Simulated assay, not measured.
Amino acid sequence: MTKQWVAGFRSAVISPYEKVQLSDPRGFHDQTVRQVLHMAGGGEQIRIRLSNRYGRTPLTVAEARVAERKNADEIVAETDAVLRFAGAGHVTVPAGDEVVSDPVDLPVRAGTDLVVSLHLPQDTGLATYSHMPAETTYVAGGNQAGVASLPGAEQVHGRYYVTGVDVLTAENVAVAVAFGDSWFEGVGTTHGANQRSVDALNRRLERGWAVNQGIAGNRLLTDEIGEHALARFERDVLSVPGATHVLVNFGINDLGLPGMLGLPPATADELIAGFAELARRAHDAELAIHAATIGPFAGAVYPGHNTPEGLAARRQVNEWIRTSGTFDAVFDVARAVEDPARPDHIHPAFDSGDGMHLNDAGARAMAAAVDLDALSL
């Protein structure tokens, strides 16, 4: 059977130099950074992607290793392997660039936790990163990339430089890209427990998987936290190897985040035009596109987030998403998680506590809204 490289894991990144930051950016100097990657899909070989997209100086990686995770910061020692880049055990990634490792003979299955350890010997400057991945990264002094565990390591909640794992697998595997905001990235779900909505969806899928390209705070139309969806669609969806479908979940931050910054929300017409453009680009690339309705956020505790104008636009856009026929399928997240007595609010059983994000049960309800027959995965 013919094999191909497809995405088995993805992690969308932002610039540490953005004006609005939801978590603290940082850099490294003579430290080992050990990161946990929860695989959406598996294969007989893997290769790791590293990005210095937003770095302002070259990134030197003196040693890089990959292994299966045993627990916390501990690896399964017998699976440990050196990552090589064009045959070398070290690599320098120019500012603004990315690299892909040579293939590694490490068979993995969906649901496996891989651990990637990077020794960064020089001052990196602020790191290109995924800012709210709902997972712990372990940082220790010096080169400890090959040690089995890192007792006493600093624990941080970002993911740095790692943007993906490709897997070599059967040609007929289908891959969906979950392209959206915090409701995909997993804010509000139990940290380190893989309870994101995309994880819950993957537990339902049988003939493929979904990789997670969510960025908390990301918007459809405007840069602020990460490049906006229309700007990053080429890189974070169309360039994903093996992608056959895209699931889009945007809108809350176009409607709520501007209020926190003292600006008016996007209009319904602006959002509709943006969604229509995403659908056009997906169909031009022969990808099926499935759209989520915009979830409720009237109970958000963040100042200025839940304006009457924003909530009215949400209802108008959702009706268009449901009825316009623009998308191959719609998953009605809004109805799946709303409080029937107050439809602009998240149901109390699904609220993480801030009126804006879903807890574990809410993430499962969001995943359950996806029609698997329409998704064909």
Rank of each mutant, 00 (worst) to 15 (best):
D223Y: 02
V76L: 15
V99D: 12
R314S: 01
L257Q: 14
F179Y: 15
H347C: 02
Y160R: 06
D80M: 14
P340A: 00
R314M: 12
A300R: 02
V370M: 10
G43M: 00
D113C: 06
P340Q: 10
G208E: 07
L230G: 02
A174S: 14
P107N: 13
Q4D: 06
D339T: 14
T326A: 14
V240Y: 08
G141V: 11
A279N: 02
F233I: 04
R204M: 10
A229T: 04
A279W: 05
F85M: 00
H29I: 01
V237P: 04
R109N: 15
V61N: 07
V333L: 15
G242S: 02
L22S: 14
S182A: 13
F9C: 05
E74M: 15
S15T: 08
D351Q: 09
D30K: 06
S11N: 13
H38M: 04
Q35V: 13
T326K: 00
Q155L: 12
L118T: 09
F184T: 04
M366F: 12
G226E: 10
A210H: 07
N359L: 03
Q4N: 09
D339E: 13
T190M: 01
L83V: 09
G262R: 11
V139F: 05
M366K: 08
L83D: 05
R315C: 12
L168G: 08
A170P: 05
A313R: 06
H228M: 01
N71S: 12
Y17L: 00
G41S: 06
R26S: 11
P265Y: 11
L287R: 03
V175R: 05
P264R: 12
A341G: 13
D113A: 07
A298C: 04
A369L: 04
F179K: 11
R65D: 03
I346D: 12
V6Y: 11
P340D: 01
V91Q: 03
G259I: 07
G208V: 11
A313D: 11
A329F: 09
A210N: 00
T32R: 09
D332A: 11
A365E: 14
R69T: 13
R342S: 12
A110N: 03
P303R: 02
T32N: 08
A86R: 13
S51N: 06
D113R: 12
G41C: 03
L37N: 10
G87Y: 02
